[in-house]
């Protein structure tokens, strides 16, 4: 986007040589590829998922078993035998992982951001920030192995876990994984708070504690909030760690009853196994996949739900983040 004004006139004459046009076309093609990627994701997910639903499948010439939208969104069981095609039991466990990992990542992440932004020396920052980057860089399959091999035994000693798989260990490793995202996005927001505000606080006799909690955090609130959403959307899309740690038990969950929502906050239910949307997708892969059967189509239906949720959260976080940028610029 640079070089728009002054240089345009100078370069116009040579701009239309075939070499220039070819170069431009190549670069444009690359950029367009990113749009094509998005369109293919959306198109593929919608098209394949449409074959899964009773309402649209006949239009696409599918005569195999299908699911109604009501069944899919209000069914209380997940399983491909019989009429059990509710996605909500999977969404519920995904929500549990989101809540659990958020409980770890959000307080720790904000505290980390505040420390790095307001308290840490330049030298401490130069060591802590790369260390935090490593937390985010460790592959999720490794976190899954950590959860099963090292964290579940600890949970077992502390709380008595029944069996090898549980949601709690998944929450812990996913929490560690998304912590750096909360920390770095929140820290950026805190750094963007103009120093004038801090000086004004000190000028009124406020302590560093007062300034941090009373000025910096509120002023950066929208950025901090957007970091939560961004990090939680990562937790929702997380696959390997929750697959290895959480197991593959499709819980039953009745989306029409209040009690089942309350059970999401019951600590005991975190000590039991549970299958998230992503874990169910991995499990479906061992089933009837490329042949185009029910499992293949349901895979895309679940994928579509996952995509819509994470996309929605990304857009939301973007909108919130843009607001705070406008505040101080």
């Amino acid at each position: 986007m640079s070089g728009d004004g002054a240089t345009d006139g100078l370069t116009r004459r040579t701009q239309n040589s075939s070499r220039e046009l070819l170069a431009k076309a190549f670069f444009f093609g690359c950029a367009a590829l990113s749009v094509a990627t998005t369109l293919s994701i959306i198109g593929l997910l919608v098209y394949e998922a449409a074959k899964f639903f009773t309402i649209s499948a006949p239009l696409l010439g599918i005569d195999g078993p299908t699911a109604t939208l009501t069944e899919f969104f209000t069914g209380s069981e997940w399983g491909l035998q019989g009429p059990n095609l509710g996605v909500m039991p999977l969404v519920a466990v995904t929500l549990m992982v989101t809540i659990g990992s958020g409980l770890i990542a959000i307080p720790l992440g904000v505290a980390t951001a505040l420390y790095l932004s307001e308290y840490a020396s330049e030298r401490a920052r130069s060591y802590l920030k790369p260390a935090l980057e490593i937390l985010a860089g460790v592959p999720s399959i490794i976190y899954g192995i950590f959860a099963v091999a090292y964290i579940t035994p600890v949970l077992d000693t502390l709380f008595g876990v029944d069996g090898l798989f549980n949601v709690a260990s998944a929450c812990i490793v996913v929490g560690i994984m998304i912590l750096p995202m909360v920390a770095s996005v929140s820290e950026d927001a805190m750094q963007a708070v103009p120093d004038d505000l801090r000086q004004a606080g000190y000028g009124m006799g406020a302590t560093k504690y007062d300034v941090s909690t009373g000025i910096v955090v509120p002023a950066a609130a929208s950025g901090i909030f957007s970091s939560f959403i961004l990090a939680l959307s990562r937790a929702i899309g997380e696959t390997m760690a929750v697959t290895l740690a959480g197991g593959s038990l499709a819980r039953s969950f009745d989306p029409t009853s209040l009690a089942s929502y309350l059970s999401l906050f019951d600590p005991d239910s975190y000590l039991e196994p549970g299958m998230t949307m992503t874990a169910a997708m991995i499990q479906l892969l061992t089933g009837d996949v490329t042949g185009g059967g029910l499992a293949y189509r349901s895979l895309f239906a679940v994928g579509l739900v996952l995509f819509v949720i994470t996309l929605g959260m990304n857009v939301l976080s973007d909108v919130i983040a843009r607001r705070y940028q406008e505040d101080y610029q």
């Binding site: 069981e77 399983g79 019989g82 059990n84 593959s248 038990l249 499990q283 061992t286």
Partner: peptide, 10 residues
Amino acid sequence: SHRTDYQSTE
């Protein structure tokens, strides 16, 4: 039919 509320794995 087989129940579905079990840990199923390949």
